[in-house]
Computed example of a mutant assay.
Amino acid sequence: MGPFALLIITPVTHDLGDFKVRRALPAKARTMVGPFIFVDQFGPARLPAGQGMDVRPHPHINLSTVTYLFDGAIQHRDSLGSDQVIRPGAINLMTAGTGIVHSERSPAAERADGPSFNGMQTWLALPDDKEEIAPAFEHVGPDALPIIEGDGVTARVLMGSLWGQTSAVTQHSPTIYADIILAAGASLPIDAETDERAVMLTEGAASLDGTPLELFSLYILAPGEALTLKADCPARAMLLGGAAFATPRHVWWNFVSSSRERIVQASDDWTARRFPVVPGDEEEWIPIPAVPKTVSYP
């Protein structure tokens, strides 16, 4: 462990046959980094011709989901009637609040040749006074997300303010999130203004203040320290974090809340089919498994 890291989390890898999902949060050693309470990296992968990813309709409460792709396309549908295909460089922010149901599938046009996909799926806990806000969906395209360029660096600010630029994506609590692409030998300072920060190397080889980073591990950084990310060869890394939460959050299956009772109620509501349906995707749903995991895949 380098002097810059409070904790290094090796993700749990779920091998789903055609692709792998690497889950860094939540972990036994750490539940959250800022509002981030769930961090998955999936792919790169290419499915066989005629197949696709099909995450059937499932519910969420008291959180926001953030989807960001490096490659491929995912069609998002939800119980608000949203129907949006996300492609690389864009953000899908879905705020569950009191409750929402959504599905994530490979678009029909992508299936003939076998869809490819690679990216990040994260959940943000909602702050105490916003856990039960109205559900909402927001799609922000690449052109609306600031890009910092220069000296072999391309960094896209996905959420919050970094390097003097601010993303237009809604923040329910102070959040930072960025996609950093570095040419060999290029470097970038890692801003230290927020309470909690973490870095995940997703491609190539890079170091923080001279200490090599393990691919896909989540490095939770010591607060307040100015650090430099440097690439040994072409590399990509995600920076994430934000304001620390004063109250703990519980995670059970697809539900996040400050209240265990609220999670029990949501579970009962889903079992009793009291959640709304997803227009255009009404036939299937994911039942609560006998032994719930943090999230379900098909």
Rank of each mutant, 00 (worst) to 15 (best):
M53F: 14
M238F: 10
L7I: 02
A29I: 01
A29H: 01
E261W: 00
P287D: 12
L213N: 08
H250C: 02
G17F: 04
C233A: 14
L25V: 11
I74V: 15
A237W: 00
T65L: 11
A24M: 10
A243G: 09
P3I: 00
Q41F: 13
I37G: 12
P48L: 03
Q265D: 13
G2I: 01
A205T: 11
D195N: 12
T228V: 13
D128I: 08
F245H: 14
L208V: 15
G164N: 13
P276R: 01
R56Y: 12
P127E: 07
A272L: 13
F275S: 08
R249Y: 15
T10W: 00
A231V: 07
T228D: 01
L201Y: 07
G241W: 02
V33K: 05
T194Q: 12
T166L: 09
I61A: 06
D195C: 11
A112R: 14
M1F: 00
A205Q: 13
I148F: 10
D40F: 04
R249N: 09
M1L: 05
R197D: 03
A192T: 10
L124D: 03
T294D: 07
P35N: 05
F38R: 03
H58P: 11
I91R: 01
M94E: 10
R262L: 09
V295E: 05
H250L: 12
P142L: 05
T65E: 10
S167E: 06
W123Q: 13
T65V: 11
A244N: 02
P59Q: 13
A226P: 00
L182V: 10
P35C: 06
S79E: 06
K130N: 03
I263F: 04
A183P: 02
F70V: 03
T10I: 01
L188N: 11
V153R: 03
V251F: 08
V291A: 12
A125S: 15
R156D: 04
D54G: 09
A112V: 14
L80T: 12
L240C: 10
D268K: 04
R260L: 13
F70M: 10
V251E: 05
F42C: 03
V12L: 13
G97S: 09
F255R: 02
L201G: 04
S173T: 15
E284A: 13
R156P: 05
Q265W: 01
P292V: 06
L213G: 06
D195R: 08
A272H: 06
A178Y: 06
G72A: 08
A243F: 00
F216H: 14
A24C: 08
D15Y: 06
A5C: 06
A144P: 02
E131V: 11
L47A: 07
F216G: 00
R156H: 07
E203W: 07
A73H: 04
V12W: 01
R273W: 04
G114S: 10
L80S: 07
A178M: 11
T211L: 09
A235G: 00
P279Y: 08
V39Y: 14
I288Y: 00
S106T: 13
A27E: 05
F255L: 11
A5Y: 00
V101M: 02
F275M: 15
M1E: 07
S217K: 08
E225A: 14
H14Y: 08
A184T: 12
K28N: 08
F137T: 01
D269N: 13
G242M: 04
A5D: 08
E131F: 05
A29Q: 15
M120L: 15
H14T: 05
L162N: 07
S173K: 07
K130A: 14
S116A: 15
Y68M: 06
M200N: 01
L126E: 10
G50M: 09
